[in-house]
């Protein structure tokens, strides 16, 4: 993190770090969304599937390196020297859900990005956050040329609970993405006020 060189002998400030997840189907604009507000070009981090207990050393039948890793893109927003928000794009494929559990632990909340042309791509993510009781909102990414539907129709099609906010957004637009993120934090605060202790994640 770019916090400037500290004075000699003075340890650098220890920042509080928070994370918000950005979920949704493949190609819905997760990395674009992260890149629109991140102060760094979204970085890629990978995890080997060996974490899930797959055999490590047998390379026979492995067709390419890509099939053995899960990639996540993430960005960073330094809000203050001692307060840093990270945005993590969740791995798109459902078979990588073991990574979601790890990412979701301790997350402030989540954005589920939706493309109305492929609404069903986000069902899994909506389901996931509902079941884990993680505060989330739905951001409908309004691609150029994507047919616009009334918000109420989208809400009904997703069978969203009334308390889940739904916003129209443009993942390429910084102001729009900021608004969505503020929405996530506000939603998390409202929920925390209503229910003082968030129940532990059950698996």
């Amino acid at each position: 993190m770019i916090l400037g060189r500290s004075e000699r002998g003075r340890p650098p400030a220890e920042p509080v770090t928070l994370k918000i997840l950005v979920a949704g189907g493949f190609g819905v604009g997760k990395t674009t969304f992260v890149g629109a507000v991140s102060e760094i070009r979204p970085l890629r981090t990978e995890e080997l599937l060996t974490e899930a207990g797959r055999p490590v050393d047998d390379l026979r039948g492995v067709e390419g390196k890509r099939t053995t890793t899960v990639a996540m893109d993430f960005g960073r927003i330094t809000l203050r020297e001692d307060l840093v928000l990270y945005l993590f794009g969740t791995p798109g494929q459902e078979r990588f859900w073991f990574m979601w559990d790890e990412l979701a632990e301790g997350a402030l909340g989540a954005v589920v990005l939706v493309d109305t042309r492929r609404l069903e791509d986000c069902f899994a993510a909506v389901d996931y956050f509902e079941r884990r009781d993680i505060p989330f909102l739905v951001g409908v990414n309004c691609f150029d040329g994507a047919a616009r539907y009334p918000v109420e129709d989208i809400r009904r099609a997703l069978d969203l609970d009334d308390h889940v906010p739904l916003l129209l957004c443009d993942a390429r637009d910084r102001e729009s993405v900021k608004e969505v993120l503020v929405g996530v934090v506000e939603h998390a605060m409202t929920r925390a006020a209503r229910r003082p202790a968030r129940p532990a994640v059950t698996t």
């Binding site: 509080v16 928070l18 203050r80 928000l85 402030l108 900021k178 934090v185 506000e186 925390a192």
Partner: peptide
Amino acid sequence: PAELPDESILRDVINGLR
């Protein structure tokens, strides 16, 4: 996990984002 940060931190996050 299973705890939200202080409300004051959340407010700082909102103000910082804005």
